[in-house]
Simulated assay, not measured.
Amino acid sequence: MTERKHRSRRSSLERMRDAREQRTPTRERLMQAALELVADGRGFGSLGLREVARAAGVVPTAFYRHFRDMEDLGLALVEEGGLTLRRLLREARRDDLPARDIIRHSVGIYVEYLRAHRLHMRFIAGERLNGPARVRDAIRREVSRFSEDMAEDLRALDFLAHLPPRVMRLVCDLVVATMLDAAGDLLDDDLSERERERLFDALVERIRLIFLGAGAWHEEGAG
């Protein structure tokens, strides 16, 4: 990696750290309390404002200083998790690595993020299909941004340059869906280290197969 990219990686992480430091402790406690309640098996839609405030150790009126309602808190959780992960994966794809290594490198960053933000990713994985409508919509938008970022970066790398934009986007949609679908297994606390390695390798291979198939793509009626 070039020195310029090292600086870019550091500056991006510093910006994320500065943004986190600007958020108030009470806001952080409310978000963390909601994540912990969801991790105990509750659906986010079943949580009450007073319940979250009590778990965070604050009075309900303090909640309204930071969020309009519970769905507003859910949207903040989606935005925080999605933005950080998107930045990290974009930087991984921009490193000077062969395509084969970029896949493994990106999956490695993804898995590290899952482990470091277990509650956050369990929330997103669980609410992606079953959460309140506004939260589901926000998650869909974040997933769409993942795909858009990936397609843009791969075009910049001149990777699979024969694919029309529409098909490249479909390929990226499939890659992102594959990564999200793997999150539940990768976050299983009962897995041994060997089982984690097996799941990691399997995810890398699935994504490679997607790109191998994309490499053989041709439009019907062409050629």
Rank of each mutant, 00 (worst) to 15 (best):
L186K: 08
E71I: 12
R194P: 01
G184Y: 02
M1N: 12
I109N: 01
K5E: 13
F211Q: 10
M179I: 08
L163A: 07
L97K: 08
E21F: 04
Q22L: 14
T24N: 03
E195H: 12
D173A: 06
E195V: 13
L160M: 09
G45E: 02
R100D: 15
A183T: 14
L13E: 07
F63R: 13
F44R: 02
A214F: 02
D72S: 13
S11P: 00
D181E: 12
G41P: 01
G48C: 00
R29T: 06
R155F: 06
G126V: 12
A99M: 14
R100S: 09
L129W: 11
R128G: 01
A177G: 11
S144I: 02
D189F: 02
R141G: 10
F67W: 08
H6Y: 08
F146H: 12
L174W: 11
G108A: 05
M16R: 08
D189M: 00
R93L: 14
G74C: 08
P164V: 12
E14H: 02
G41C: 03
E14A: 05
F159Y: 08
G108W: 11
R93N: 05
R118D: 09
T178H: 05
I139T: 07
S192M: 06
G43C: 05
A34Y: 07
L154Q: 09
F67L: 06
A156W: 03
A138H: 11
M168I: 07
R136V: 07
M121E: 12
A19F: 03
G221M: 10
E142L: 05
V111I: 14
S46M: 03
I210S: 04
M121G: 01
R10D: 03
E71C: 07
D18S: 09
H218K: 15
L163H: 11
V78C: 09
E14C: 00
G82H: 09
M168L: 14
E36T: 02
L129Q: 15
R17C: 02
E71W: 05
R206A: 15
A151G: 10
L13W: 02
R134L: 13
R196C: 13
R94H: 12
R86V: 10
A182I: 11
P98A: 03
F63C: 11
A125R: 07
R155N: 06
L119R: 08
L114Y: 06
A34S: 10
G184C: 04
A99N: 07
Y64M: 00
D18R: 02
V38A: 01
L203E: 11
L73R: 05
R100G: 00
D189P: 15
L75N: 04
R42A: 10
Y113A: 10
P60T: 09
H105F: 12
P98G: 07
